[in-house]
Amino acid sequence: MADTPPRTGSPATPVTGTDLDTDLVVVGGGPAGCAAARMAASVGMRTVLVEAGALCGSLYRVPVLDNVLGGHTGGPGLAAAITAELEGTGLCRLVLGRRATGLRAGDDRVTVTLDTGARVTAPYAVVATGVRPLQPRDVGWITAPTDLALPSLWEADASDAAGRTLLVLGGDRPVGTFLRAHPALGTRVLVAYPESDDYKVEEVRDDPRVTLLPVGHLVLGSAGGRAVAEVSDRSGGRRTVAADTVFLSIGGAPTAPAGDLVRDEAGYCLPADQHPRVLVAGDLRSARFQRIMTAMGSGGEAALHAYYAARKPPTGT
C-alpha cells in the first residue's frame, strides 16, 4: 500500500482562525497549488495557501510516475519532496485542514472565505482545487444502484488483484499506472470504456492481462458474490461479463469553491473565462491535460502572471 499523507493541522502546518491579507492566495494544495506558492515565493510574493487536507495528498496514492522531472518514480516521494520544500519557504503561510467555501473578485482584490468564517484577501488568487473521483451515477453510460460507491483504481494494491479478475469501469490513466506499478502481477483486467475514452486505452492495449470492452452502455449488478455486468457494445451486440471486484477509472468532477468562478457545462473553470484577478491552474482547467507535470507548470505560470500583473503600470501613466 502507498504511504499515507501526513496528518493535517500539525504544528508545522498551522491553521489560522483570523482574517489575513497577503500578496497571493492559493486555493488548493496539490501539485499545481504548491507550484504556484513556490513560484510566488521565488519572486518575493507573500502567499497564503489553503488546503482542506494534506499537501499533495492525492500523490500518495500514485504508485508509479513517468511524467515528472527530478528522478521521482513514485507519488509518495514526490509529495514528500514538495511538502518539505514548501514548508521551508518562509514567504508561504500554510492553512491546512480548512476548506474554501467562497471566492469573490472585486476591482482590486480577491476575497476567499474559509469554513471558519475567516477571510483571506489578496490582489490575485490562484484556484487549483482539482477534481474528485466520479461515481457510476455521475455518468450516462453506466446503470447501477444510485447509492453504489465504488473505489477508484488508484486505491487498489497487489493484494486486491493477485489471482483475481478485475472489472475496471472507464479507461482513464490509472489503468496504465496500476499495471506499470505491478508488472509481474497475475491478474485479469476487464476494461469497460465509452467511446470518449478510446484514445486513453492505447497505452494498455498490448498488455496481455487486459481485455478491452468498448461499451455503448453497461448495466452493473451482482450474482453469487461476484460483480456481473451486462454490456451493450457500440454495434448493438450484448454480452455478460463477471469479475471478482470492480474499480473505477472514469475520471473526476471539478471541485471549485462557490463564488466568482465561471464554469463550463462539465464544471471546469477555463482560465480564459475568469475574472482578471482569478487564475486557474491544474486539473480544474479541463479534463484533457490532467498530468502532474502540466499541473505544476500551470501553477507556476499562474503565480508569475499575478506577479507581473501586480507590477504593471496603471493605464495612462
Rank of each mutant, 00 (worst) to 15 (best):
R288G: 14
W154F: 12
A32M: 03
V68N: 04
V191F: 02
L167K: 05
Q290W: 12
R99V: 07
V126W: 04
F247G: 00
A156G: 02
N67R: 11
R205V: 14
V175D: 01
T187D: 06
C34K: 02
H275A: 10
R104D: 13
G17R: 14
C56Q: 04
T146M: 09
R234C: 10
L179I: 12
R291T: 15
E51K: 00
V262M: 12
L270N: 14
S10P: 03
R311D: 13
A158L: 04
A295K: 00
D207S: 12
E301S: 14
T83V: 08
T83R: 08
P76C: 11
G77C: 10
M45L: 15
I292M: 06
T4Q: 12
I142N: 00
G102S: 08
D138G: 08
G297I: 01
V241C: 07
R173W: 08
G252L: 03
L169C: 10
A37T: 04
D207T: 09
G259A: 10
L261D: 00
G170S: 10
R180S: 12
W141H: 07
H182W: 14
Y308P: 05
E301Q: 14
L150R: 05
L166S: 05
P76K: 11
A272C: 10
L167T: 03
V68C: 09
A80D: 08
L148G: 09
A256L: 05
M39R: 07
D19V: 12
P151S: 13
Y124G: 06
P133T: 11
A303V: 02
V15K: 05
A32G: 07
D66S: 10
I250R: 00
G70P: 03
S286M: 11
T143G: 11
V280I: 15
D157F: 02
A310W: 05
L213R: 02
V64W: 02
G221Y: 11
R46E: 04
L59P: 00
Q135L: 12
L94V: 04
R311N: 11
V127S: 03
D273S: 15
L91A: 14
D19P: 07
V120N: 00
G225K: 09
R109I: 06
P314C: 13
R263L: 14
